[in-house]
């Protein structure tokens, strides 16, 4: 069953240009200048129930705008959106009963009160019957491990504890679709693992569809099974995370360390890093024979350590972010296909 369907979605903003200086500022009060900004252009994709999708893109790519249109906060300039059978712009309140959201900087918990008070209030917002609310709250406390700090005001919780409470609160009304914006930002390594495990568990067992934006590639690799990348307001890539990882196998990073200072010369390959007795090379396996390179390195001297790694997924994503156009991004993807 399709939970999200967008067709040729676009969004254009009109911004007023605020000039510098006193006289231009006064003039602009009477004769304002405007500029049209195409934040999103022609985005089409669909998401099936139970999927876990990472929605990626550099800052200013149009991610937040797209998510706001999916939630009904913003209306599209053109195109169509269907979320769980609702048009978000026309039936925002009706849709709101079926979606949950955890937006990084915007908390839905009351700062000075324990999370329980916020849960009671959210129960009223989502019209959950009091008995059902109690049962659901107990279940969430149990599954999210909130018991130890359930009675503490939110302002006294650590960031990790607060995020757990936020995610639990967003699931209170049993939404079918959960939007998550940077859910692990600012968390330590252990807390990140725990949050990802909780979300992954919820996705798998409760079949809640996850729609996640994140700049943390580990969120993508460990939590999502599919990645959609937008840049310059357009859809650049829509692949499974497995396929994405395969793209990183084309380029290898080979590190070598010798027992003593050694001359290394590989045909047509400049090292990424070089010291007297060590070096790191990036090798495009479509253009160079990996076995030959390994042999040359081994023959150059007494090898103490040799590592062969795939180019990090983060580097591929960064290269995509740096691309100047959709065509350039596609070219990059094609170059990396094994």
């Amino acid at each position: 069953m399709t939970v999200i369907q967008t067709r040729h979605l676009c969004r254009t903003f009109l911004t007023r240009i605020k000039p510098e200086g006193f006289a231009p500022s006064i003039r602009s009060l009477f004769r304002p200048q405007h500029r049209a900004v195409k934040a999103v252009q022609d985005i089409s994709f669909s998401v099936e129930a139970g999927e876990s999708v990472a929605f990626l893109g550099p800052n200013g790519a149009g991610k937040s705008t797209t998510i706001k249109m999916l939630c009904g906060i913003l209306r599209a300039s053109c195109g169509s959106i269907d979320v769980l059978g609702f048009d978000p712009s026309r039936r925002r309140q009706a849709l709101a009963f079926h979606i949950g959201s955890v937006f990084g900087q915007k908390s839905q918990l009351w700062y000075h009160l324990p999370a329980g008070d916020s849960f009671r209030l959210l129960g009223a917002v989502y019209e959950i019957e009091p008995k059902q609310l109690r049962r659901r709250t107990e279940e969430l406390i149990e599954r999210f491990g909130l018991k130890d700090y359930w009675d503490m005001p939110v302002r006294k919780l650590s960031l990790g504890q607060r995020i757990r409470c936020e995610i639990a609160a967003s699931l209170l009304h049993k939404p079918r679709l959960l939007f998550l914006d940077e859910p692990t930002i600012g968390l330590d390594v252990v807390a990140k693992h725990e949050i990802r495990a909780l979300l992954e568990n919820w996705n798998r067992e409760e079949k809640v569809t996850l729609f996640l934006t994140s700049h943390d590639i580990d969120d993508v690799e460990q939590l999502s099974r599919r990645a959609i990348l937008i840049h310059h307001g357009t859809l650049v890539m829509d692949e499974s995370v497995k396929a994405l990882k395969r793209l990183t196998t084309v380029r290898k990073v080979i590190g070598v360390r010798y027992a003593e200072p050694t001359e290394i010369s590989l045909n047509g390959l400049e090292p990424l890093k070089r010291t007297a007795d060590a070096a790191k090379f990036e090798v495009d396996t479509t253009r160079h024979n990996l076995q030959e390179i390994m042999q040359q390195l081994v023959q150059s001297g007494a090898v103490v350590d040799l590592t062969v790694e795939n180019k990090p997924l983060e580097d591929l994503i960064a290269d995509l972010y740096r691309s100047q156009s959709r065509e350039e991004a596609h070219e990059l993807l094609c170059k990396n296909r094994p």
Partner: peptide
């Protein structure tokens, strides 16, 4: 607000 037609100024 939802239509984004609230004209906002950028410096």
């Amino acid at each position: 607000y939802e239509s984004g037609n609230r004209i906002s100024a950028r410096s």
